[in-house]
Design a protein around this nucleic acid. Structure first.
Lengths: 123, 123
DNA sequence: ATGTTATTGCAAAAGTATTCTCATTAGCAT
DNA sequence: ATGCTAATGAGAATACTTTTGCAATAACAT
């Protein structure tokens, strides 16, 4: 594995932004720092980071997956999506009694909570 | 609007199954009853039903939207997705304290809860 | 400093989901 | 029963998103 400036930049972006990012989103951010970086490189790097288990995919209802550092995902957390700027933020905390929603004979292995609204920057 | 047998069948399927269904899924179910029905017809009918506000889209994390009767969606509810058969079920009930997860200066307009596990049929 | 070769950029291609064109079929008003 | 025309089937065409082939570039071990 060679530490190219593209890879370094993508890693920096994940660290700095600390929230789930999509390929396109990463591309746009990276172009600001690097003169040129190709979308294909973003995809290749994401796939490598996925293999290395440095990042994990975050399935967003109604849109393609985003990715976030596995390190950040290690702590149980959920997400907020701003309806104005579409940004996805990590949330802390969780709720109780989710199992109470389960019908008879269904077993639960995991869950996902999405809050929607307007983020601090758009408010 | 003409009541074709395709449209009737799709309406019947939504009524009978009473859970979020994807275009492909509806197509496969419909083929069992109707000798032939085209996927394009499913899409056209779904779009019409969406316009008429008879159905609503359900965004599923990590996969394309499914649709369910607006009538069913009128009652606040959430979803369960079976990790074995991929079926999505409607759940009843909800939880408290979701707003406690909201960071400062974020406002919340809605939320979504997804439970994952094994459904009654796969158990 | 140099050589090897992993990585990149670019453009083409592939994979999906969804829409569209158009000739044919079939609701339904008369 | 007939005619008008909305809806369908079939397949081509779009629209994205993601992947690939290949020549050029740039890490980094020596």
């Amino acid at each position: 594995m060679r530490q190219t400036k593209q890879r370094t930049e993508i890693e920096r972006i994940f660290q700095d932004f600390n929230r789930p990012l999509g390929p396109q989103e990463i591309h746009e951010i990276a172009r600001k720092s690097l003169t040129s970086i190709n979308l294909a490189t973003i995809y290749r790097t994401l796939n490598r980071m996925l293999d290395e288990e440095v990042i994990v995919a975050v399935g967003v209802p109604g849109e393609p997956d985003r990715y976030e550092l596995k390190k950040a995902a290690a702590t149980h957390h959920h997400h907020f999506r701003c309806e104005k700027c579409q940004t996805v933020y990590d949330l802390q905390g969780c709720v109780e009694n989710l199992k109470a929603m389960l019908p008879n004979n269904f077993s639960m292995t995991s869950h996902d909570i999405w809050l929607y609204g307007i983020c601090k920057d758009c408010n």
